[in-house]
């Protein structure tokens, strides 16, 4: 029983480590800023997830108490990851994209970022 738990914990840690590494590698390998954004937001969710699952198995078996902090970390990560990605994407749109380089949003004509630029809100 104990060795089974140890195998599960190790598997969680190794999977977490691999995905964390691949995410970081993606940052180097991919070429444009928007593509680079994919590597950390994706590969690290499972990277952190694997580590957290290992931690959740470890706590009741080796420390003798249940631990739920990991669930909270997952929750906060899922709430904050899209926000940071959104911020970086928005900066990229401001600096490197023009309305002509993006697909047109139908009857709205402009994306919100460029609409704000046009209104003179540019810093």
């Amino acid at each position: 029983m104990e060795s089974l738990a140890e195998i599960l914990i190790s598997a969680g840690l190794v999977i977490g480590g691999i995905f964390g590494l691949v995410g970081s590698f993606g940052l180097i390998k991919l070429r444009d800023p928007m593509s680079r954004l994919h590597a950390p937001t994706k590969a690290t969710t499972l990277g952190v997830g694997g580590t957290l699952i290992a931690s959740m198995i470890h706590a009741p078996l080796f420390e003798g108490h249940l631990s739920f902090h990991e669930l909270l970390i997952t929750l906060f990560l899922f709430l904050t990851a899209p926000v940071t990605a959104f911020f970086i994407a928005k900066v990229h749109l401001h600096r490197n994209e023009r309305p002509e380089t993006l697909p047109t949003p139908g009857e709205d004509r402009l994306w919100a970022t460029h609409d704000a630029d046009r209104d003179g809100n540019r810093d």
Partner: peptide
């Protein structure tokens, strides 16, 4: 929806159109 798109494979939501009728998504 935007958060789900960002968290799932190979797609990041980047912007909303001026009146909120379209979502700009970047695919890897």
């Amino acid at each position: 929806l935007a958060a789900t798109i960002t968290l799932t494979p190979g797609t990041v939501s980047a912007d909303l159109s001026a009146d909120g009728h379209y979502l700009l998504v970047h695919c890897l």
